[in-house]
Design a binder for these strands. Structure first.
Length: 585
RNA sequence: GCGCCCGUAGCUCAACUGGAUAGAGCACCGGCCUUCUAAGCCGGGGGUCGGGGGUUCGAGUCCCUCCGGGCGCACCA
């Protein structure tokens, strides 16, 4: 059996139209035959608009052409009838036995139903979350996590070979600031009075790191407060520039006083931070194949190497003491600095190296899931990819719009350094993993998201995710009550299924692979969420109007086969979303 | 000022790469539990798809313009 009978059926039907076109419009046989699933079941199983497309080219009446096409359609064992509708649509109605086939397909394929081949085994990388390890994940990161994880699942189901990756920004100044922040908290624990810098990381997790550091390494990193503070530049409250200068001095002082131990401290803090992020994401059902270190790009010399290559190709130049990449030659608004006047590489430089490395690893397509606030960055990264000889269209960047958190009707302000924000962990604990993931996914990623905490917490029972899960649990309950052997249902006679509600459900089941295909094509996992809601709605309606465990054995078994198939598809879809499919609720 | 995203029912959102009468949930009104889970079902009201122009047989969807909201425009990451 083919992994996707629905696709085979579709191409079979398209073939009928192609044949008809050769007779009706031999001069326009190249007109693409597009079959789509009508929104309304009254419009049949498939609709074709080829007559309307032809009408434009041939300047003829579309309904008349549609009639001619229908007359020339070869007979098919699957098609009951074709009819003209609206401006010139040709609607195909499948024979009931053709519709029932989907139940066999679902039950035979099981968890694999909905796995299709459009990806063709191409290698695609999905890099997502990639939040700085300088603090816990917040609700914005949660959205990227839910989106990226489900997108990866969807692509996998669509037949791509998917690698999930987290880029760890473990290099640069913000990492130094984290180290210094932890160090000062540590010094406090040791009894050294060093005032905490206002632009240090204020969160409690920094104190936790300090406590851990002291528990493991004792007073190894202790230095006199006087030595730490000696001749440090002053910074008045509110003088932002002076505060940053003082921080730089503090970083330099820490490195001078600690020597190699500074690096040791940094690695310790980093490791624990990443570990916490990994744990939270794991609890959220989000896993990665690779945690890629930015620092490693420097240590392996890749950054310098890539820049050398760009330089050789004439894409770099020096101005005002800095090294610039001529990104304007590749469509960017302005050229970008890759190496600063002080000799340090910019974040962009390591990102060039990182993307170069991604494509060198053999990915046909690379997907970077970014927050919408990074959109201005796309042009320069694409420019760098083009400059190094790779087709930049192979990089896809879905932008996740920001999440605004509401509580008590007020926007909750969040700041990383101030430590005042609601973490993803808080959200998961309050709302639950299933509801949180569904809530994030139940809208397009480029839609702003107002996350109402009060609503999510107090009315979590009204979340649509329970509606879908409930449908799944109801089937479990029915099957438990029946207490028969499910294996037998896969081969039972389906002929008794002919009620409208049953035909509608079968139609819906048959369109599941289409939903996967569209979701993968558009990088839109929310398509799956909406599909499941529709399927659940049709199931609940069926459930309320029809009793399954009836005396007539043949009818009972046919109905059970149908609802078992519904349950299977619900489970498959929920798995893509990272939501559990409970047997009881 | 320039760029990207968004604007659809009172609220939160869909609308399958231009299709048929723009659909759900929440909220509101009225019904349905002695029968497989009522976290459910059935029915009802509710819309200038931000405004205007254009392309098309056909526009919520594409183009132009204006209005409104968000986010960017560093030798930060």
């Amino acid at each position: 059996m083919s992994p996707n009978p629905a696709t085979d059926l579709k191409s079979h039907l398209a073939g009928l139209f192609t044949t008809a076109l050769e007779v009706v419009a031999p001069e326009a046989t190249d007109t693409p035959v597009v079959l789509e699933r009508p929104k309304s079941a009254a419009h049949g199983d498939y609709a074709c608009n080829v007559a309307m497309q032809l009408a434009r080219r041939l300047k003829r009446n579309p309904r008349e052409l549609a009639q001619r096409v229908i007359e020339q359609l070869p007979n098919s064992p699957w098609v009951e009838r074709a009819e003209i509708a609206g401006a010139g649509f040709i609607n195909l109605f499948l024979r009931p036995e053709a519709r029932r086939e989907v139940i066999r397909s679902v039950l035979a394929a099981g968890d694999a139903f909905g796995r299709i081949g459009v990806g063709g085994g191409r290698k695609v990388q999905v890099e997502f979350v990639s939040a700085n390890p300088t603090g816990p994940l917040h609700v914005g990161h949660g959205r990227g996590a839910a989106y990226g994880a489900s997108l990866a699942n969807v692509l996998e189901a669509a037949g791509f070979q998917v690698a999930r990756e987290y880029y760890v920004n473990d290099a640069g100044r913000q990492m130094d600031i984290l180290s210094v922040s932890a160090w000062i908290r540590y010094l406090e624990l040791c009894g050294e009075a060093v005032p905490f810098p206002p632009n240090g990381y204020q969160g409690d997790y920094v104190r936790t790191r300090a406590t851990e550091l002291r528990a493991i390494d004792g007073e190894r990193f202790r230095r006199d407060a006087a030595a730490v503070l000696e001749r440090l530049p002053e910074a008045a409250d509110g003088d932002e520039d002076a505060i940053e200068i003082r921080m730089d001095a503090l970083i330099a002082r820490a490195k001078a006083l600690l020597g190699e131990d500074f690096d040791h401290l940094t690695r310790f803090v980093l490791e624990r931070q990443v570990e916490e992020i990994r744990d939270v994401l794991s609890r959220f059902g989000v896993h990665f194949d690779l945690w890629y270190s930015e620092r490693s790009l420097y240590e392996s010399g890749r950054v310098a190497q890539v820049l050398e290559v760009l330089d050789q190709a004439g894409h770099l130049y020096t101005q005002d003491g800095a090294r610039w990449f001529r990104s304007t030659a590749f469509g960017d608004d302005k050229d970008r600095v890759v190496q600063r006047e002080n000799g340090l590489f910019t974040y962009f430089a390591s990102d060039i190296a990182y993307h170069h490395d991604k494509f060198q690893r053999g990915f046909d397509q690379v997907i970077d899931v970014w927050g919408a606030d990074h959109h201005g960055y796309i042009a320069r990264v694409k420019a760098a990819i083009t400059a190094s000889g790779t087709d930049a269209d192979r990089l896809i960047v879905p932008l996740i719009q920001l999440v605004a958190l509401f509580q008590g009707g007020e926007v909750v302000k969040m700041g990383k350094r101030s430590g005042s924000y609601v973490t993803l962990e808080d959200l998961m604990d309050d709302v639950g993993v299933d509801a949180t993931r569904y809530f994030y996914l139940a809208r397009k990623c480029d839609q702003h998201l107002d996350f109402d905490l009060d609503l999510a917490k107090s009315q979590s029972n009204e979340n649509p995710v329970y509606y879908i899960q409930y449908a799944h649990a109801r089937v479990s309950s029915v099957l438990e009550e029946w207490d028969g052997d499910r294996i037998d249902l896969a081969t039972t006679d389906l002929a008794p299924l002919d009620a409208p509600a049953e035909l509608v459900l079968m139609q819906r089941l048959a369109s599941y692979p289409d939903a996967i295909e569209i979701a993968a094509r558009d990088y839109a996992p929310h398509i799956v969420a909406f599909y499941l809601k529709d399927l659940a709605a049709e199931f609940h309606s069926y459930y309320n109007g029809t009793r399954f465990l009836v005396d007539d054995e043949a009818v009972k078994r046919a109905r059970l086969a149908l609802v078992l198939a519904v349950q299977q598809v619900l489970r498959n879809g929920l798995a893509l979303l990272g939501v559990t499919a409970p047997d009881r609720m």
